[in-house]
Amino acid sequence: MKCSECGEREATIHETVIINGKSIEKHLCEDCAAKAGLGGQGHLPMHELVATFVKSVAGSEGAGAALTCSVCGLTYARFKQTGLLGCASCYRTFEEKLGPLIERAHEGATHHVGKIPRGALERSRQGGPDRLETLLGSSKEREERLSALRRQLASAVAAEHYEQAASLRDEIRKLDELERGGA
């Protein structure tokens, strides 16, 4: 089989990735696979997936294409080519556009739950409630996170996934404690 990218060399790398129930097959030669960052150590063709997502969510051009991150200088147009962001501030600069993209890539999830940098958390405790907001968000966001976790907990209990339920309960307790300790 010839490489589906260059059509010249023999395809030696065949990958099937399943995303949201859709399987995508790729048949590439070594060189094209390398270019796509494919092959080897289980590195996913994430950038390509992102590029596809970006195109389908944001359209091929649109008003945001000229948007530029003031901290690192990355343009949204460039992000659309590579699927890679330039710095932490890009997430704020492009938040409106990234939101739906991220939601789609993560099966509808909109907010982080789970580990919070422990060192930063320690420092926030010493610095008072302002710092807590930088790690956990506004009180509205914090409330949303807790209700998302409670929903997950309810479905874990309903499905009799008790281990999972226990870890969710721990997570809720941890956040509750932070609210009390940080307020």
Binding site: G83, C87, A88, Y91, H111, H112, K115, R118, E141
Partner: peptide, 27 residues
């Protein structure tokens, strides 16, 4: 945790640990 004692991570309340590729954000 040990690394974070010496380094400050890029982290946002909404997206969690910030990564170059947005498909890796969150945890």
């Amino acid at each position: 945790d040990a690394l974070e004692r010496a380094l400050e991570y890029a982290f946002s309340p909404r997206f969690g640990y910030l990564t170059a590729c947005p498909t890796n954000v969150g945890t």
